[in-house]
Write a protein that binds this DNA or RNA. Structure first.
Length: 717
DNA sequence: TTAGGGTTAG
């Protein structure tokens, strides 16, 4: 247990009960000196972390009359009430003691309390009172008021306070200047902030950190790191733990592992990791965002103290890197050890982990857990749960939840989630109905609404409706972005309107992004157009030379037209860049466990039986008319070997496992990390008929519901 | 007796 030393040599435990006893003992006929009493109360207030004890200390101070002797202690009480979330109590003490002749100290304290609690309106109104009472605002006043305006991005008010500071001749006080830079930055006026920063004659570490974090927060990591380099050139300035957090966050945005290691080394050398949990947290998040979860986990394990953010950073690190099952096992560990309580941020991360993993069992369990925890499910989390159900293939539950909610429980994102859910499952018409309904209920569609809606039209082949939606964007004041063009190209391309798609790209008022060319490339693959595909690929290799998916798609196109020389060339190119085709992974749940299968899997405990089962299934469906689609094989091998490669596809293994292990009436749910291949798509249609079995496959793009020999996508995907 | 900067999710 931590102990707190008090001036008369006794030790008082931080435990509130013991502290309360200390207060009472102290009140009973205490005759110690002013210094001793002052020290005693000061320490008590500094360590006090609950309202009951604070009230006891407060009444003890009143009863002993000591409160009248020390303005400093009054200030401490005001701040303590405020940090414990009771600004009204703080204000009532302030009102009781303040007189028009008071100096600015207590006014500044009250402003500080409001600013730290982001009570901007109250802070500004107090500041105006102060002016009315002719209390001179000083170099302490302005930083607090500016912080308050910054917390609500009230730039007009901030500018007014800036003017007041100039009139009082305090514009060049270093603290006021730092607060001004911060205020402008938080209000999104980075250039104004930089202007104040440039004019400053002396800049200490805090000023530099404000400027660095401004760029980091505005997602301009290169500029943040450049400023840091510039700062290192100044004599006597070296990053402290707060600077390190901002730098780590900037490096995370860049995703540069080499820089990440250098920030980590700097933190180790200076002992920041022991000094401040936030440094460890930001380094964990940084490594995860640089794609190195192993190093993130190492830092996480080595942290002597962890808080909720530490756990969330590690959990979301796993999810971001597609390692959802590791996130779930860490979450279990967190629950068992009760090291951190379940917050809505944690719940949000875990809900997305379940959605990603495709685990219906865990998703339901997590939802029950969230309900039983009694936590308040605010709209953001509720939307994520809807999205999870839709992504787990249980669109019905998502629709039920949505229909049972009241309009004030929903926001624009709730509607977007539903539109995207319908689209994913191939219900384009329902997505359009929901879109209309959303507007009837007074919700204004945003750029995400249109992305979801256009994607829905694309998946369902609703070309005319899609074209109309795209035109309607301007009417609803949503400016088409590259991703909207990508949806249109995807929609036109899938429908075989390749010329119209290319025409649209040529007419784009903005530079076509990789998503746009990627959509065209995919369309070329579907329709076997190697020439146009080559053009799209060229653009893509230039824009993203390291993106494996585009090489794979292009070699697919070449392979389909038996251009093996070109396939070989692309493969060599990929090899020389150190790129590898991402491993296919299909997962299926059985007995509350998630079973994963890679292509040609040799690791699953029952892989031998599963491979045998696929061979049997293929024989069965061949009798019903299935022929292997050898165009799906990228390798230039003998025709019979191609068939063997096809039977080892991960999704076939997962489906075979499902048929082997699940009860015959149970539908088979499989989630694949990549797009399902043509041959598997055709095979599953036959299996659904021969075995009278519902098979639901979620691939990287959408859902396929196979039943009675056909698929919900109508072979349009 | 008082002050300014930072991290997770979306």
């Amino acid at each position: 247990m931590r102990h707190l030393c008090i001036s008369n040599g006794r030790y008082l435990s931080c435990c509130p009960k013991d502290a309360a006893k200390g207060v009472n003992q102290h009140r009973e006929g205490n005759t110690s000196s002013f210094e001793s009493q002052h020290h005693f109360y000061n320490h008590l207030l500094q360590s006090c972390c609950n309202l009951k004890l604070l009230k006891q200390i407060h009444s003890s101070l009143i009863a002993s009359g000591f409160i009248k002797k020390s303005t400093h202690l009054v200030a401490r009480i005001i701040l303590r009430y405020s940090t414990l979330g009771h600004p009204k109590c703080a204000r009532s003490i302030f009102n009781g003691i303040i007189t028009s002749t008071s100096n600015s100290f207590l006014w500044n304290t009250m402003l500080r309390a409001y600013a730290n609690g982001s009570h901007c309106v109250e802070a500004l109104s107090l500041y105006r009172n102060m002016q009315r009472e002719c209390i001179a605002a000083d170099n302490y006043t302005f930083p607090f008021v500016l912080k308050a305006t910054a917390s609500r991005s009230l730039v007009a008010e901030g500018k007014m306070v800036h003017g007041d500071a100039i009139r009082r001749g305090l514009e060049s006080d270093m603290f006021v200047e730092a607060a001004l830079v911060d205020m402008y930055a938080k209000c999104g006026e980075t250039t104004d902030g930089h202007r104040v920063f440039d004019r400053m004659p002396d800049r200490d570490l805090v000023c530099w950190t404000v400027m660095i974090s401004t760029y980091e927060q505005s997602e301009r990591p290169e500029e943040a790191l450049m400023l840091f380099q510039q700062m290192q050139g100044e004599e006597g300035l070296s990053a402290d733990s707060v600077t390190a957090v901002s730098l780590a966050s900037a490096v995370a945005q860049l995703g540069d592992l080499r820089k990440a290691r250098s920030i980590h080394a700097h933190a180790i050398r200076n002992g920041f990791l022991e000094e401040d949990i936030s440094v460890g947290n930001s380094i964990v998040a940084m490594y995860a965002k640089c794609g190195n979860v192993e190093e993130a986990r190492l830092v996480f394990e080595q942290m002597k103290e962890k808080d909720g953010i530490s756990w969330n950073s590690m959990l979301s690190g796993y999810v971001q890197n597609g390692r959802a099952s590791e996130a779930l096992s860490l979450f279990d560990q967190m629950q068992v050890s009760r090291m951190s309580k379940l917050t809505s941020v944690t719940a949000l991360i875990m809900v997305s982990a379940c959605a990603y993993l495709g685990s219906r069992h865990l998703g339901k369990k997590l939802h029950d857990f969230i309900i039983s925890s009694g936590m308040q499910v605010e709209t953001t989390l509720w939307n994520a749960i809807l999205d999870m159900y839709a992504k787990l293939g249980d669109l019905e539950t998502a629709v039920d939840m949505f229909n049972m909610s009241t309009p004030d429980q929903r926001n624009v994102s709730s509607w977007n989630v539903m539109i995207s859910g319908y689209g994913m499952h191939g219900y384009g018409k329902d997505a359009l109905t929901f879109f209309a309904q959303m507007q009837e209920e007074g919700f204004e569609p945003n750029h995400i609404s249109f992305t979801s809606l256009l994607a829905a039209c694309s998946h369902s082949g609703l070309v005319d409706e899609g074209r109309k939606c795209f035109q309607d964007m301007n009417k609803l004041n949503v400016k088409p972005e590259a991703k909207h063009y990508a949806c249109m190209v995807d929609m036109l391309g899938r429908a075989g309107l390749l010329d119209e798609a290319l025409d649209l790209i040529k007419k784009m008022p903005l530079e076509p992004s990789d998503e746009v060319w990627g959509a065209l490339l995919l369309a070329c693959k579907i329709h076997g157009n190697a020439e146009l595909g080559g053009l799209a690929a060229q653009k893509l290799f230039h824009l993203h030379p390291e993106h494996t998916g585009y090489y794979v798609l292009m070699s697919n196109i070449y392979a389909a037209s038996s251009k093996w020389q070109e396939v070989g060339m692309l493969r060599r190119d990929m090899k020389s860049r150190g790129l590898r085709k991402p491993a296919a992974l299909s997962v299926i749940e059985f007995d509350a466990e998630v079973h994963g299968f890679h292509a040609a899997d040799q690791t699953h405990p029952q892989c031998r039986q599963v491979h045998e089962k696929v061979q049997i299934l293929v024989l069965e469906i061949k009798m019903a008319g299935y022929t292997p689609d050898r165009l799906c094989v990228l390798h230039d091998v003998e025709e019979e070997d191609k068939d063997l490669i096809l039977t080892s596809h991960s999704e076939k293994l997962a489906v075979a496992f499902g048929i082997m292990r699940l009860e015959p009436q149970m539908p088979i749910y499989v989630t694949k990390n990549l797009r399902v291949c043509n041959d598997c798509h055709s095979a599953f249609k036959f299996i659904s008929q021969v075995h009278q079995r519902k098979i639901v496959v979620r691939d990287a793009n959408r859902f396929h519901h196979f039943q009675d020999g056909s698929c919900s996508c109508n072979d349009y995907w």
